[in-house]
Write a protein that binds this DNA or RNA. Structure first.
Length: 895
RNA sequence: GGGCGGAUAGCUCAGUUGGGAGAGCGCAGCCCUUACAAGGCUGAGGUCACAGGUUCGAUCCCUGUUCCGCCUACCA
């Protein structure tokens, strides 16, 4: 047996047990278990990522749930994996290539993909190792990757089926384009940021030379692509302008002035330039016109101006062009004014480049039909979102959901299973535009038999594959055992930032392809911020590294901190001090274990089938076991409702302030050989360890292995032992114990407030205020002596106060400590007066309340009764305090 | 513009059906009591953001205000 060192040092211990658990296969679902199945799929981290606080919290909560359920007898599968993160990963590898003076186009597509796979093999597993360090009890034998063979098959299957149902289609319209990543983005992938810019007022001269119309814009350079000016049809100022044309400055074009109801007459000049190819609003206006307005693309895919922008501007970067356009307009006297103006600008969520609306041909999913069902499932509580407040967010988005652009112009990802016939030799083929969507590459065109087929160059949005995660990871489209056993999964644990990206889409796809919700509960946890409440980001330099926390304080303390912080519906302001505090808790537990071990050395095991009833327990044992039962109940209930912080504080309170502060101290007053005390110490400790294990897996295992019974080795690990369930309470013991505590605290207060040395043993008198209290105290006198450091205690219903004693007045007892020469009577009088004043305040308050007729008549009887009792108690207490002060004053006079 | 959340001890936060508010850290005092100084005991510290309303009674429910934070949106 290992010796327990004086303080807990996690170094080495964590690795040791993690390897042990893995080697024993404890993380795999127990095939013998007849319990309920419980399954969580991990939100797959990006392979480019490294562990941050968000992951740490997310994983810790899932691990707590899994370990708790596993110990509770469920058949648990926690399925891990990673996400290929198309754009992010491609960016990383492209950066490498750039450093080598290469770019992906110099390699060919296959060589580039190979290169990314190589990168993935070398670095992509980093985050998995970090997750393991956290203690995550995932079944690593089932680890999946969104680009692995099985998942890719699922992606193709889903694409083809949705296409065949007409829910996936291809269209040419404006999309969000990132000029740096060179790809289309979905609406969600655009981050809007409020920025200060300029509103430029430009005069557009009428073609007939009869004046001008002024438009206001934040993007002067797009005027080169204007194809109309729009005004509100009811705007009297512009009634006569409608139907006329303006000569678009800097170009040779004439464009019409058109009416459109979407124009806000009160904004700017009430006239708006229309650039259909570079603005979503303008696109809508253009399409409403009949005939539709022309689309002129003046900005290209790299963010620079096209030929259509005119030779003077072609090739310029869009921002350079803006400057030049303004300069040119100024020279012509066409700038009316410039105004400072703050507005939201869309940025690429991967690289923060300002996105450009561009007209391109892309693939879309029509998601409305899927969303409808997904909304219903949440409305009908087939899926519970916890905390419930997030339901509104979900509904708001789902009810206004727009088609999802799923094609990306990058190489790393699931290539779109579409081929284009290059010949289109017959009408049928032409009708289909030569588009062939197929699970496998078709040998010839199914329409016209041509052999010239070219696959679509694009890949799918990474979130498309993530949306299938809950069933693709379980083996779909095959009908696997895992799928049958574990789908629907039990709960999804995630942050609110990906409710739309991921959660909503998983619900839609799960319903569509499995005909069943993907999970029963969605637990939305907080965002981890820094101490000041700011989002952690590398640029702000306020990032706290979880690995550093684990190094510094140990994984257990770190995990416990996260759990203790995880109150529902509130963000976490992470503070390192809290971690330090919980490291102390780990150490406290460790030392409690040392004590228990040392005191029970010659009888180190809990008897098999430990039955509380077989012992003739004294009050302290009955009390601590009842408190233990209460704690177990609290924790199970809290975990059931995802109240991690409540569970954590409950067990913290119990272990430190009940077990250590009271029970262990009381146990010390017993002879160490007392069988009932030793058993109770061991039982309480061992049960506490099991309660704590989901939160602090390592230290609990280490201690557990050190104290576990050697003879009856039923279980090899605390991980697979039983989670404490409900045990009987002993309310009488809890009530009786409060008398003891009052007596002890009374003596301690006197000691503390009068600065009497703890080493000085006191003689104490205790006046009991009821026969029952009297009996309890007499029977348990040794504990009071021990805890209050008293030499002699005189107890009785009629114990008289000795002159010159300090007094502490409690509900069930009065405590007198004669202080002989030590007593500072003035200080003692002050102390009592202060106490008296507090009591007086409460009496006044209650008095007012009890004189209130309305209260007496309308408040529930038990409340009135309770207040009356309290009032009487306080009045008696006040009388006793007054009496004591009087006596002290008499002493003072005598002296 | 719309929506959501927050404001409680010096700091970070709990507070579950409305019945005079708690923890951790910090602070002050006394202690190295043989599990633990990463500890023990005792204590100080709060008009529960502000103003109304409902109620016998409000930190809690309703309305409004102020200050933060977030999400969302096509006013150029």
């Amino acid at each position: 047996m290992l010796e327990l060192r004086k303080s807990y040092n996690p170094k080495g211990i964590e690795e040791k047990w993690y390897e042990y658990w893995v080697s024993k296969g404890y993380f795999k679902p127990d095939s013998d278990s007849r319990g309920n199945t419980y399954c969580i799929v991990i939100p797959p981290p990006n392979i480019t990522g490294s562990l941050h606080m968000g992951h740490a919290l997310n994983m810790t909560l899932q691990d707590i749930l899994c370990r708790w359920k596993r110990m509770s007898g469920d058949k648990v599968l926690w399925l891990p994996g990673t996400d290929h993160a198309g754009i992010a990963t491609q960016n990383v590898v492209e950066k490498q290539l750039t450093a080598e003076g290469l770019d992906r186009h110099k390699l060919d597509r296959d060589a580039f993909i190979e290169r990314v796979w190589k990168w993935r093999t070398e670095y992509g597993g980093k985050i998995i190792h970090q997750l393991k360090r956290l203690g995550a009890s995932c079944d690593w034998s089932r680890e999946r990757f969104t680009l692995d063979e099985g998942l890719s098959r699922a992606v193709i299957e889903v694409f083809v089926r949705l296409y065949e149902e007409g829910l996936i289609y291809r269209d040419n319209r404006l999309i969000n384009w990132c000029p740096r990543c060179h790809t289309a983005l979905s609406d969600l992938e655009v981050e809007h940021e409020e920025l200060e810019g300029k509103l430029t007022y430009i005069k557009y001269p009428l073609s007939n030379g009869s004046g001008h119309i002024t438009v206001a814009t934040t993007r002067p350079e797009t005027m080169l692509g204007d194809t109309a000016v729009a005004v509100h049809p009811d705007d009297s100022r512009y009634k006569d302008f409608i139907g006329k044309t303006v000569a678009l400055p800097l170009t040779q074009r004439k464009i019409p002035i058109i009416p459109d109801a979407a124009v806000d007459s009160s904004f700017g000049t009430g006239a708006v330039k229309v650039t259909p190819a570079h603005d979503f609003n303008d696109e809508a206006i253009a399409k409403r016109q009949s005939p539709a307005l022309e689309f002129i693309t003046v900005i290209g895919k790299d963010g620079s101006m096209t030929e259509d922008a005119g030779s003077r501007y072609a090739g310029l970067d869009r921002y350079e062009c803006r400057k030049l356009v303004i300069k040119d307009l100024k020279e012509r006297g066409l700038i009316e004014k410039e105004q400072r103006y703050t507005h939201a600008i869309g940025h690429c969520y991967r690289c923060k480049t300002v996105i450009e609306p561009l007209l391109t041909l892309q693939w879309y999913v029509n998601v409305q039909p899927l969303a409808k069902e997904a909304i219903r499932m949440v409305r009908e509580e087939k899926i519970r979102i916890i905390p419930k407040s997030w339901e509104n967010t979900y509904f708001a988005w789902m009810e206004n959901i727009r088609d999802w652009c799923i094609s990306r112009q990058i190489w790393w990802g699931h290539r779109i299973p579409a081929w284009y016939c290059q010949k289109m030799q017959n009408a049928k083929c032409k009708m289909q535009n030569g588009v062939i969507v197929s699970r496998v590459m078709p040998p010839v065109c199914p329409y016209c038999g041509s052999e010239e087929l070219v696959q679509d160059e694009d890949v799918l949005d990474t979130w498309f594959s993530s949306a299938l995660w809950p069933f693709s990871t379980l083996g779909w489209p095959d009908k696997t055992n895992d799928l049958k056993t574990f789908y629907p999964t039990s709960v999804l644990v995630t942050g609110f930032d990906i409710i739309f990206f991921w959660v909503a889409r998983m619900i839609m796809m799960g319903l569509k392809f499995m005909g069943e919700v993907p999970f029963r509960d969605v637990y939305i946890h907080a965002l981890v911020r820094d101490v000041k409440g700011q989002k952690m980001s590398k640029s702000k330099g306020n990032v706290v590294d979880p690995l550093t926390m684990m190094d510094r304080y140990g994984t257990d303390a770190f995990r416990f901190t996260l759990a203790a912080f995880a109150a529902q519906g509130r963000d976490i302001r992470f503070s390192e001090e809290r971690v330090e505090g919980y490291r102390h808790f780990v150490n406290k537990l460790w030392n409690a274990a040392r004590f228990v071990k040392q005191s029970t050395e010659h009888r180190i095991q809990i008897p098999e089938n430990f039955q509380l009833s077989t012992f003739n327990f004294q009050l302290p044992e009955r009390w601590i076991l009842s408190r233990l039962a209460a704690t177990a109940d609290d924790m199970n209930r809290a975990l059931e409702e995802y109240r991690f912080n409540d569970a954590a504080s409950s067990v913290y309170q119990f272990v430190w302030h009940e077990f250590c502060d009271w029970y262990i101290e009381m146990a010390k007053s017993e002879p160490v050989t007392s069988e009932s005390v030793m058993s109770c110490l061991l039982y309480t400790l061992e049960t506490s360890l099991r309660l704590l294990h989901p939160f602090m897996p390592y230290v609990t295992e280490e201690i557990w292995q050190n104290i576990k019974s050697e003879e009856s080795e039923v279980k090899e690990s605390i991980m697979i032992s039983d989670y404490p369930k409900s045990m009987p309470r002993d309310y009488q013991a809890e009530e009786d114990m409060s008398c003891i505590m009052e007596a002890v605290m009374g003596i301690r207060s006197i000691r503390g407030e009068l600065n009497i040395s703890p080493s000085l043993e006191l003689n104490v008198s205790i006046k009991t205020l009821s026969d029952i209290t009297d009996k309890i105290l007499r029977k348990n006198l040794q504990y009071v002596k021990r805890l209050a450091k008293a030499a002699e205690i005189k107890i009785g219903r009629n114990v008289r106060k000795i002159e010159g004693s300090a007094v502490s007045v409690k509900n069930s007892v009065e405590v007198y400590v004669p202080l002989k020469g030590l007593l500072n009577i003035d200080a003692e009088i002050d102390r009592l007066k202060k106490d008296g004043a507090r009591v007086e305040e409460s009496i006044a308050f209650l008095n007012k309340k009890l004189l209130n007729e309305d209260f007496l008549q309308r408040a529930p009887e038990e409340v009135v009764e309770k207040e009356k009792t309290r009032y009487n108690e306080l009045v008696r207490k006040k009388e006793r305090i007054v009496e004591s002060i009087k006596k002290l004053k008499e002493v003072e006079v005598k002296e």
